[in-house]
Nucleic acid binder design. Sequence first.
DNA 1: GCATAAACGAGACGGTACGTCAGGTCTTGAA
DNA 2: TTCAAGACCTGACGTACCGTCTCGTTTATGC
Lengths: 212, 212, 212, 212
Amino acid sequence: MVAAMQSRISGPRTGRPRSAEADAAILAATRAALVELGWSKLTLGDVATRAGVAKTTLYRRWAGKNELVVDAVAALFDELELPDRGTLAADIEGVVIQFAAVLARPETRSGLMAVLAESTRDDALRERIRTSVVDRQKRLVLEGRARAQVRGELPPEADASDAARSADLIFDMVAGAVVHRTLISAEPVDPPWVRDFTRVLLLGLAGAATGP
Amino acid sequence: MVAAMQSRISGPRTGRPRSAEADAAILAATRAALVELGWSKLTLGDVATRAGVAKTTLYRRWAGKNELVVDAVAALFDELELPDRGTLAADIEGVVIQFAAVLARPETRSGLMAVLAESTRDDALRERIRTSVVDRQKRLVLEGRARAQVRGELPPEADASDAARSADLIFDMVAGAVVHRTLISAEPVDPPWVRDFTRVLLLGLAGAATGP
Amino acid sequence: MVAAMQSRISGPRTGRPRSAEADAAILAATRAALVELGWSKLTLGDVATRAGVAKTTLYRRWAGKNELVVDAVAALFDELELPDRGTLAADIEGVVIQFAAVLARPETRSGLMAVLAESTRDDALRERIRTSVVDRQKRLVLEGRARAQVRGELPPEADASDAARSADLIFDMVAGAVVHRTLISAEPVDPPWVRDFTRVLLLGLAGAATGP
Amino acid sequence: MVAAMQSRISGPRTGRPRSAEADAAILAATRAALVELGWSKLTLGDVATRAGVAKTTLYRRWAGKNELVVDAVAALFDELELPDRGTLAADIEGVVIQFAAVLARPETRSGLMAVLAESTRDDALRERIRTSVVDRQKRLVLEGRARAQVRGELPPEADASDAARSADLIFDMVAGAVVHRTLISAEPVDPPWVRDFTRVLLLGLAGAATGP
DNA sequence: GCATAAACGAGACGGTACGTCAGGTCTTGAA
DNA sequence: TTCAAGACCTGACGTACCGTCTCGTTTATGC
């Protein structure tokens, strides 16, 4: 998506325009191939074939496997929402379950971890992942906290810097715990675990907020 | 190491014996190559050359890139310790910092994430990682908790099942937060973060232990 | 040229007419590219760019690389002439030197041999070469012989069939020797060689004409 | 052949030796592909497949299509011989017919001309062709002339330099005429043509030898 | 003078082959 | 039997051209 968008921003106004169908077909084919084959056995030639597209068409839009997979997986995270369930605890449980569900999908499991691994040596890729995937989920933390503060479940933040640090910490703790449980421990994120986790997290946050 | 050991279980007693130096040289070369090249550009041919060994020698001991990298990285985690720092908070801070230091190494960043990605589609590999890397760190949780219970900082567990569930949760939360902070957020695990994290975690655990 | 002409024979009478400049620019660009790159590295896209023309414009006129190169090279042969130098020997030497000069040009060397090679498997191409390049040079043989017969240097032919056969043989011998010397032996067609060759050829022809 | 030989001259004495069967299979497959497809549609991937060999094996021995085709075609010229037919005229006719037969083969027609075309821009290739193909046929001229001198059909050469120049000229004339007749005029080298050609050539040579 | 219709530039498109590279296996001779 | 060396087969890589196809634009003619 990102690639396609960028190419249109400063794109030429002459020549045959790029096919929008091709973009969609390639991303869908990429997700299908991730499900069937996993990241390491996914080949761009195969993706092109599945998409009914020539390899050159694929390379015209994405620089390589990593960029393609990031874009293919990023879309899956856009469906995360934070419906108002009435209490902070319920909100957290809701988002944890949704997040775990996305991570449990085979295309996410295999694709996301692999590009994260690659990103440790490729700053451009890391930035792309951060932009397309990670940072977009921080909104959930901010929204949930704001809602809880309206409800009086959490006190308002003292200053903006504290607020940002705290949001980052919460994000690391929530996303980290779910990622670890799902992808590393490879255990299910089932209701008991969610309840336990939410309880510990909320008590910790509450204590930290009122504490010294 | 594991591969080498296994091969000796039912190993031959005749012919030229395998070189022990080769094992060590290969693992060291693998770590060096991970640092320089990262997982995706690491090639077994190159590792063999660096180790001064033929490719056949390498394949005689490890089935492929993944197995080799797991063994090469696993050793790095064995150096984690839990020195008694007097309080549970200090103990947690200590292990978090150590853990983060190991994850921050380039050979771990790139190698570990990649094999974790592969493990999502390869049960044998997942088991190997769990055995060689993940489960070995749970001892730190168990040891720290036992020590805190002796000190009276935490109440004893009611029953064994609860104890196990709780240890798993703590492990997911600690390891998950550090992994996410280090490898995904790509932000430093610096003292302020460690302090904030430990504070939230401890308050949460304490609250959960005493509460209903 | 041929293509362009043909297209006009049954051409439409409406719509924008084809640009005559484009034809010339393309052929000139083709010759330039042949000089710089040789046949095998010449690409139609590059020729189009050099000519300041779109690829479609090129393909509208020529079916492919071979046809284009034939037309580009054919023009070079039209400059061959047979000025009357007074004797048959001098006439032959003159035409041999001219012919060698055309063959020695880089665009001819590389282009002509390549399309000849292609023509061994493509009858239409062979016919095109014969029409555009080869047969047009036979006129030199016929003209030279007629002139020599007028001068009394050669006897008149007994019958037309003999005359044709003999002209073909002379053509094969002259053109063959020059082509072989230039393109295969890759030795210069210098005055001593021309003198030697002409002497042997003339003595042979004279002997054959008078002999049994 | 040449490539294989060279690689063995300074070749290593360790490691698995190159397969001699592969060499032969590749050259045979190349000739077969030349017959079926011609030079321009011949692909190295297809040759490798026909030979039952990997592309890398092929590229380990030959630098590219041109080198491969030269070696594949060169072998065909080694079968030319000069059996003693009693007179110089008969000897020449014999070798002309043999030479024409080799050139008329589809693998030679298409392959040889193409590499000659390439050689006009590649000195190494020209040298290779000269060594592998062209110069080896000069022996026929030298042998035939020597035999004719023994028989008294031709006078002995005055000095070595003249002898060499004369041999080159004869070679250009014989080979050139046959090449032109076969590949360019695309007319058959049939007995009448051979007789006419031989007659003109011999009379010319005889006249030149005796004349001033 | 305005519609028609073809040619034009640009460049994306589906293909095919390229020459290279890595994975993993096999074959040699030496240790 | 292992080892170093290196050839081998397989299959993917990313690139280059091919010849075709859309686009929007230009330029003659003929109604």
